[in-house]
Design a binder for these strands. Sequence first.
DNA 1: ACTATATCCTGTATGC
DNA 2: TGCATACAGGATATAG
Length: 286
Amino acid sequence: MPELPEVEVVRRGLADGILGRRIADVQVLHPRPVRRHLPGPADFAARLVGRTFTEPRRRGKYLWLPFADGDALLAHLGMSGQFRLDRPEATLVPNTRVLFSFDDGGTQLRFVDQRMFGGLSLSPEGAELPPEIAHIGRDPFDPEFDLAEAVSRMRRKRTNIKRALLDQQLVAGIGNIYADEALWRARTHYARATASLSRAKATEVLTAATEVMRTALGQGGTSFDALYVNVNGASGYFDRSLAVYGQEGRPCPRCGAPVRREPFMNRSAFRCPRCQRTPYGSAYLP
DNA sequence: ACTATATCCTGTATGC
DNA sequence: TGCATACAGGATATAG
C-alpha cells in the first residue's frame, strides 16, 4: 500500500526518468484511472501530447508531474498504482492502464494499477500545487510542516488517535501501515482519545510517525508483494522491519507479547497488547 | 461544522 | 473441485 515513503521513492525514480521529456503519444487502455478527467479518456490523451515534464512533486500520498506550461499531471497510486519506466518494446505487465510515449523514442512512462483506486488527471494551473489537493495537509517531510500546529489541531479533534493519524487534512502521508508502526513506537493504543493526549504525547506520536516513515524511505519503502514496486519494478525492504503491522501472533520486538490484530474502521489495527494497553477511561470508540 | 460510514475495485486466501 | 466470502484500504460522497 503506497504511503508517503513509497510515493516518495516513486517521485525520485520519475525525476530521473521524465525530467525535460516531451510527450509524443498517450494511450488510455482502461477508462477508470482517468475517471476524474470529465471530458473523457480521448480528451485526456489529446491534451497531454506535446507537453514537457519538469521536476515531479509530492504532498502526502499525492504526486504531481508539472509541465513546463504551468499545468500538471496529478496522480494518486491508490492501493495498487505503479509508475513504470520501460523500453517501448518491453512487454506490458498485467493491469497496465495508461501509456505515455516520448518524442525521444526512449523509455515509456506506464501507469499500472490492478485495483484502480488510483488515477491520473490533468490539473490546469497545477504546477505549483494542484487546486484539487489544496485541502490536503502538509506532510512531515515538507519544510513548512508545523509540528506544534498539527499537535494543537489533533488535540482539538473529537476522535481517536489512529483516525487522526489517517486524516490526510491533518497530517498527510500516513496510511494504515505507518499509523500502526508509529503507535507501537509511541506505546499508544489506537483508540486513545486525541482530546485526552498531552501536548507531549501527541508530539511523540507524530514524531514517531515521521521517524518510521523516514527510516522506511531509507530502505526503499515497504513491499509485501508485487503490488508496490518502484519505477524499475523493484521492491523496497522495510517490510522486514515492521514491528506490528501484518505481524499477528508474532512476538512484539520490544516485550515479546504476541501481536494482536483487531477490527478497526472495517479494517485492521495491529498492536502489542502489553506495550499498547487499552485506555479504558480515555478511549474513543465510535 | 464536524465526524462516521458506505463505496469503489480486483486478485488472493480461506472456508464449506 | 467449485463456489462463496473475506480481505487488502485511500479518498470521497453522503449520512448523521
